[in-house]
Simulated scan of single mutants.
Amino acid sequence: MSRQIQLSPSLMTMNLDKFKEEIIFLNDKVNSYHIDIMDGHFVPNITLSPWFIEQVRKISDVPMSAHLMVTNPTFWVEQLINVKCDWICMPAEVVNGVAFRLIDQIHDAGLKAGMVLNPETSVDALAPYLDILDKVTIMTVDPGFAGQRFLTEMLDKITQLRQLREEKGYHYEIEMDGSTNKKHWKLLSDANPDIYIIGHSGLFGLTDDIASSWNQMVAEYEEETGFQFDNGVYKHN
């Protein structure tokens, strides 16, 4: 049995003093880069920006996915369209009244639209526009900071989204974000999202060297899940 999954490192958690080195190493190993954009209001933190995406593009052609944690999604969607961010994922909690307009705006620009569900928000909140989304991101931690407590019960949302996709013929991909590491690889693998966001505890913070950290991450995934890593295809032993 084989399983195709996607890996998306969270660049908020990378070692910025080794920015170029780590990006170049990861370019031929990952499916996308995860860019957290926080405004200090939706969550009490401020990180990254469309400008950061432009800097990464100078040394990478890997697709980039922006995770908005902002109170004014309209402003940020426009900025991300301007830099042609491949995926623009909005917080479901603040798009009431503008969701269809923003999704259409993203699609009209030839880009992909996603929604992010914080732990307290149910999958039902996406019901009006689930059929036109390209991605749904499930937060398995409270948003805003790295290192938050893993919320096991959020994995049920991944199962629910997979069932809905199969029943309704929806095309969105399912992504999980939060505490993706050795402690939780088995639980996450059983829930079977399409895309894993990997950050400090699962990759960048494992060692002082990105190649060693990558090898350790792969070894831990294989040990915990029983799947073997082979260029993005995970085959059951």
Rank of each mutant, 00 (worst) to 15 (best):
Q4M: 11
D156T: 10
T207G: 00
I198D: 02
M154S: 06
H184Q: 02
Q4I: 12
G202F: 01
S65F: 03
I132M: 15
V98L: 09
L130V: 12
E21L: 01
L133F: 11
V56L: 11
S213K: 09
A92P: 04
I198G: 07
S201D: 01
F150I: 11
D86E: 13
W87Y: 06
F150A: 12
D230T: 14
Q4Y: 11
Q228F: 10
E78M: 07
D194G: 08
F19N: 00
L68G: 04
S49R: 03
D39G: 10
E167Q: 07
F19L: 01
S212V: 01
F52M: 15
V30L: 12
I24D: 01
N15Q: 11
V56F: 07
V98D: 11
S10R: 08
A191M: 07
M176Y: 14
V43K: 08
Q216Y: 06
D177K: 14
D230F: 14
P63Q: 09
G144C: 10
R149H: 09
L80Q: 09
H67C: 02
M115V: 07
D104A: 08
I198H: 05
G144K: 04
K135A: 15
D230N: 15
Y172F: 12
D131P: 13
E78S: 09
V62Q: 01
T159E: 14
K112C: 07
L130K: 13
P91E: 07
L203H: 06
W185V: 00
N237Q: 15
F227W: 09
D208N: 08
F52W: 14
Y234N: 05
E175T: 07
T47N: 12
T152Y: 15
R57N: 03
T121G: 06
M1I: 09
F145P: 03
G147T: 08
P119N: 01
T74M: 12
T140A: 15
E93Q: 03
V56T: 09
M1P: 08
M154W: 09
Y196A: 00
V123L: 06
Y33A: 04
Q6R: 15
T71Y: 11
L68F: 05
D142T: 15
G97Q: 10
F204E: 00
M14Y: 04
G110N: 05
D156S: 14
A66Y: 03
E54H: 09
L133C: 14
E220D: 08
V123M: 02
P143T: 15
R101I: 02
E220T: 01
P63W: 04
W214M: 08
F42T: 03
G232F: 09
P9M: 06
I37Q: 03
N192D: 10
M217Q: 05
M64C: 11
S60F: 00
Q148A: 11
V233I: 15
F52I: 13
S122A: 12
G178H: 05
A92N: 08
